[in-house]
């Protein structure tokens, strides 16, 4: 295998994982922008999506229907969580709320352990067929599903924020929370909307990655942390930044694992996190506020 085809191989597998990180990171950024909370339970939403999907498919529901139901189920669960655990503490400081999300993450993981046990579950790939060869590299069909879903979801997100009234109301909250309140935009409703939307992104990420990684009750921790690193890399408040951060992280991880040693794979993400926080705490795409007065 020549170096160039090797690099192409790492790039493709990097893009696959990067797409997942991007979806998770986008969830972090949307919730953070609207509510000021860093939601460390984001990774558990990924796990819930994958678990619901596996359970439904094993119960005989066709994959397409299972996907829709699983996403909606996660949205409902997260909506209830926002209602019960975040809204009731609305007077608390953002730091307290962040700690609440850490507690939620542990609780969700614990409940998942009770329901589904410690065994890994396997989900069949969405389409059958062997690996596809591209210029010396190979890619499994499920990777194409991951990349395709990521692109589609990103396009949909862009459309919602750019062209729909609800999306614009959410953006208004991000741009100027005070003025948004004066327009009669209810910050609580927007918080719920942000959580539910991010839940859908996370659930989708979990569902499309499930056939590649196996589904376990604790898969959310690493995916959540990696998504957080990607979000920080992108500046934590920029949606394009989150996407680029996710893809960049996926590619760097895969290159590092391939060229150095696969043992360093997870370490790379956290070295990147430390470097960003030391050298460029605003992230690569941190918004420097420009405001005309």
């Amino acid at each position: 295998m020549s170096l160039s085809s090797e690099l192409l191989q790492y790039l493709l597998s990097g893009l696959t994982m990067g797409g997942i990180y991007a979806l998770v990171a986008l969830g972090f950024v949307i919730i953070h922008n609207v509510t000021g909370i860093i939601n460390f339970a984001q990774g558990e939403f990924v796990m819930l999506g994958a678990m619901f999907m596996v359970t439904l498919v094993n119960a005989g529901v066709p994959a397409a229907g299972a996907l829709v139901i699983a996403v909606i189920l996660v949205m409902i669960v997260v909506g209830l969580i926002e209602f019960g655990a975040i809204r009731t503490a609305k007077k608390a400081s953002p730091l307290t709320l962040v700690i609440i999300t850490i507690g939620l993450s542990t609780a969700i993981k614990g409940i998942a352990l009770l329901i589904w046990g410690t065994n890994p579950y396997k989900l069949e790939p969405f389409t059958k067929g062997g690996p596809i060869h591209i210029g010396g590299a190979t890619i499994i069909p499920q990777s194409l599903w991951v990349i395709g879903t990521t692109v589609l979801v990103l396009a949909l997100t862009f459309f919602i924020f750019e062209y729909t009234y609800w999306g614009k109301a959410l953006r208004a909250c991000v741009v100027n929370k005070f003025a948004a309140r004066l327009m009669g935009i209810n910050p609580q409703r927007m918080s719920l909307l942000a959580f539910v939307f991010s839940a859908a992104l996370a659930a989708l990420a979990g569902i499309v990655i499930a056939p590649i990684t196996y589904v376990t009750y604790d898969m959310g921790l690493m995916l959540g942390l990696k998504g957080f690193v990607a979000a920080v890399l992108g500046g934590l408040s920029s949606t394009p930044g989150a996407v680029i951060g996710g893809l960049a992280l996926g590619i760097m991880e895969s290159m590092g694992a391939g060229l150095l040693s696969s043992g360093y794979k997870d370490g790379i993400a956290f070295i990147i996190l430390l470097l960003v926080l030391f050298l460029k705490p605003g992230g690569l795409f941190g918004t420097s506020g420009t405001k005309r007065v």
Partner: peptide
């Protein structure tokens, strides 16, 4: 309806979106 001090327009949204959001409660 309060027009706040320092104007507080949504600066990264367009003029038309600013106006539409003004009508949020009856949209």
């Amino acid at each position: 309806s309060l027009v706040p001090e320092h104007r507080e327009v949504f600066d990264s949204l367009s003029i038309i979106d600013n106006l539409k959001l003004g009508a949020y409660h009856r949209y």
